[in-house]
């Protein structure tokens, strides 16, 4: 079902899977991939059947080792480069999706690769995953939102550490920092990511959308504004339901 060259787009029931597919170059993110990712995300946004997304990388060695540096400096001019970023705002499209996004990462998760994973809601990592933001050591800045998403995901302390030192961390450290929610053996990665997204989808789409919106919009507000937003959204959800909500009864699953 995919006409794409640099990614694979598949649908399995309500779950869409987007695979970064340039394994020969460690799935390096290039202009073609940007354009195709943009189209795939638009398709996801506009497809009411799609209720969750798993994002992953093809091949054995990398989720995505970063931007394709061979294309750097090839834009006709800075003005055009900026114009294109504006018109094909793939990162803005990521954050505008209100369905759960799960990144299944393995191998190198560097630069743009890490930033793409950070634009997802939940990250599941294979034991061999290696994370890092090498941009500053190359005289650049992360450009896919990393400077903003990183501190919001796990606090400004570790974010500055990774950004300023450019050091790489392994899956275990990423787990301890809260960067990834789970670490699993490589062979189990896709099954785990699928299980995570299916587990989430056991709850209704409306309430998941509201939960994600309340949390993401609320983080950009004062607490008082966030609490008002939550009250409005909770009320809408309750009004849309029939009958009372039963109390939670102790069956504890961990």
């Amino acid at each position: 079902m995919t006409p794409y060259q640099t990614i694979i787009y598949e649908k399995q029931g309500p779950v869409a899977r987007v695979t970064l597919n340039r394994p020969d170059v460690l799935n390096a993110y290039n202009v073609a991939m940007r354009d195709e990712m943009y189209e795939a995300l638009e398709a996801i946004r506009d497809d009411p059947e799609v209720r969750g997304v798993v994002l992953c990388g093809a091949g054995d060695r990398a989720f995505c080792a970063g931007a394709d540096l061979t294309e750097f400096g090839t834009a006709p001019s800075q003005a055009i480069a900026r114009q294109v970023r504006w018109e094909r705002d793939v990162w803005g499209l990521f954050t505008s999706l209100d369905i759960p996004l799960v990144a299944a990462v393995h191998g190198y998760v560097l630069g743009s690769g890490l930033e793409i994973a950070l634009l997802c809601d939940i990250r599941v990592a294979a034991e061999d995953a290696v994370f890092g933001l090498p941009e500053t050591s190359l005289g650049m800045l992360p450009a896919a939102g990393g400077t903003q998403t990183l501190p919001r995901v796990f606090g400004p302390g570790p974010a500055l550490d990774l950004l300023l030192t450019g050091r790489r961390i392994n899956a275990r450290e990423a787990y301890n920092l809260g960067l990834v929610a789970k670490v699993v053996p490589r062979y189990h990665l896709m099954a785990e990511a699928q299980a995570v997204v299916e587990g989430i989808l056991a709850s209704g789409s409306d309430v998941l959308r509201s939960a994600k919106r309340a949390l993401q919009r609320g983080m950009d507000m004062t607490l008082a504004q966030g609490l008002e937003l939550e009250a409005r959204m909770a009320l809408d959800i309750f009004r849309a339901r029939r009958g009372p909500i039963p109390a939670w009864r102790g069956a504890v699953e961990t």
Binding site: R152, F154, D206, A214, L227, E230, L235, I245
Partner: peptide, 26 residues
């Protein structure tokens, strides 16, 4: 969310401010 509703007593706001967006969303 398992009951089809949204937390209504500050959970969506206080949780991410305490544990960060990633843990809160999970």
């Amino acid at each position: 969310v398992r009951f089809g509703v949204l937390p209504w007593d500050g959970g969506t706001q206080r949780l991410p401010r305490l544990v960060g967006r990633a843990h809160a969303l999970a």
